[in-house]
């Protein structure tokens, strides 16, 4: 091959692939609006809040960002909205172990940010992030559970709390919660309305859950010692 031929291959080959890329870009742009809900004023304002506080400087979103803090794509599905708002405005007031500092996010900004994060959770991401396959396999093959354990699982308690290392770190660790001196009656009261026993709590109220289930759950919690 002569140098001139090599040069022409480089120039025209690159142009050829760039034209294909442009074609796919046009098609993608036409499809994107149909792959997510409508963008309301609050969603747009929330995206501006996201950028103002440089959230991506620690977090990732749609898997892109700084890998220092959790991914925010599905966060509104993982944690209760009330908790998230309180956390955004004062992270360590809610969870003393939180790594996130208090940035001065206002109540209005927190609402807008949550509107944006709710929007992002509904984007069609081709199934990302996938469900943890080993966790799913373990619960199928796992040991028989008590009624209280089943309630713990069905209400998604492990999104925020952990038992023996399994679960979230947003709320207190429950591994030894039965050793804190509180009886099942106290737990039922706390589950129905956390504010009634702890005014600073960011935990949502579970008053809507049948009383019998709450009693089973409380009975399970006091066994954790």
């Amino acid at each position: 091959m002569t140098n001139k031929a090599a040069r022409n291959l480089f120039i025209f080959g690159s142009l050829f692939f760039f034209v294909i890329f442009l074609g796919l870009t046009v098609d993608t742009m036409n499809q994107i609006d149909g792959r997510a809900p409508e963008i309301t004023k609050d969603v747009d304002a929330g995206k501006m809040v996201w950028q103002k506080y440089d959230c991506i400087g620690c977090h990732t979103i749609l898997g892109n960002g700084s890998y220092f803090a959790p991914d925010m794509t599905k966060i509104v599905e993982q944690k209760p909205a009330g908790y998230l708002k309180q956390f955004l405005m004062d992270p360590r007031g809610v969870n003393p172990k939180a790594a996130m500092p208090k940035l001065g996010i206002s109540s209005q900004e927190a609402d807008q940010l949550l509107a944006f994060l709710t929007w992002i959770s509904k984007v069609d991401t081709n199934g990302w992030p996938p469900k943890p396959i080993l966790a799913a396999a373990a619960s199928v093959a796992g040991q028989p559970q008590s009624r209280g354990q089943q309630v713990y699982q069905s209400q998604g308690c492990s999104a925020c709390h952990s038992i023996k290392g399994i679960g979230g770190t947003s709320g207190p660790d429950l591994t030894k919660v039965g050793a804190n001196g509180k009886d099942a009656e106290w737990h039922v009261k706390h589950l129905k309305d956390p504010h009634s026993v702890n005014p600073k709590s960011a935990m949502p109220a579970y008053g809507g859950v049948p009383e019998a289930d709450l009693k089973e759950l409380a009975a399970y919690l006091v066994t954790l010692k």
Partner: peptide, 16 residues
Amino acid sequence: ILGTGHHYYFIGTPSY
């Protein structure tokens, strides 16, 4: 150029 596609798997862009 088309390798850019490896960033477009899971961000809301079409699956092709």
